[in-house]
Design a protein around this nucleic acid. Sequence first.
DNA 1: AAAAAAC
Length: 455
Amino acid sequence: MEISELTTSTSSANGDVDNLATQVESLDTSEPKHRSLLESSYEVKVTSVDDEPLLSVTKFEELNLSPNVLKGIYEMGFTTPSKIQAKALPLLLKTPPQNMIGQSQSGTGKTAAFVLTMLSRIDYNLKAPQALCLTPSRELARQIMVEVRKMGKYTPVITAEAIRESHVKASGKSRHEEFAEAQLIVGTPGTVYDLLKKKVIEKKHMKIFVLDEADNMLDQQGLGDQSIRIKNMMPRECQIVLFSATYSNDVRSFATRFAPNANQFSLKVEELSVKTIKQFYMDCKNDEHKFEVLDDLYTLLTIGQSIIFVQKRETADRIAKRMTDKGHKVINLHGGLSTAERDEVMDGFRKGSAKVLITTNVLSRGIDVLQVNLVINYDIPMDLSGRNPDFETYLHRIGRTGRFGRTGVSINFVHDAVSWEMVQAIQKHFQRDIVKVPTDDWDTVEKILRKEVNA
DNA sequence: AAAAAAC
């Protein structure tokens, strides 16, 4: 098989800017238009396993989608394919199917791309599992399922979530009954593996297997093992699709074995950090001072919806309690909560009834709440040794804001030499300035942040 | 030294 490569550089892609602007507008008309994240040039490298010329579509109509899928897409407000959709969809939808390893910035339309592909692969006359998507958290699985149901609204698709149950099913259907006829399944690895093993989920008709946040799904101890076991249960001819905004070097080489002969698209590392997300740091004196600064920040500034990331569950609980004691209205989500509690907290945050969410890395990836305009790294994400920053997690965390071309702000709390060095390393790695804001001069802070953070 | 993910 020949490998053909095409590198496209777009410095004045007005078409793309228009396309995206149209999407942003239709997603939320209550906000003023922001600069598009595609405003400045960036490079997408596409690699195809065929030697056929690479196709990039400008309209969804060019993709031979079923009219029912098209109708769902348009109703969601998508008018034309985003940049990555334009390049990836022709490859994803090829017959016979080919594997795909895709990388693009957060909020550029990856989810829609693989959901659309799943919906297009299903034989709707066959009431059996045919499309499976795995995610690293229940919150992300639920979010993707919402997208599936919107996009598949005019198709007869039968769906099921394979996540730990949070309540007794109102329908009265057993899981066996539910999964027997479900054609499209989104879930977390533990539950999916369990259901496959028990033959609650039938595997023999599976046509497409998607790993969202693929690097995380393959890298993480536990998650990786489960993902591999599940993939090994899929039929040989099943299409494998990996998507993420990040692939660390070691994960990428494994990904190419996990999804052999895959078409690929990827970005250079300096293109990954979304330019519309402003990055700051606050120099705190010590760990206790971090909390005082946090308290002051939420007392003295009017802040829209925001997420505060910490390293440990216990820190999330502790900070949430102390903030509540100080009179702030905050909610708290981590893996130690019950499934019902997690669903309730997440639903409240999505509705906007809660403005401040304190959480762990469980929500670092994929979660899409458009109104979030501030992300605080109360603890800088680091690797297991505690000596190096976790660049991938950092990028995913700050990517919770600035969705779909909106502006966003991230603030890193620094409190000692190690955390300061990590911020320096992050700045160097992504070639993006991380600007200091004072911790004692709130007039200045407000001037710097006002435009972006105020509600 | 974490977090997540199953029963």
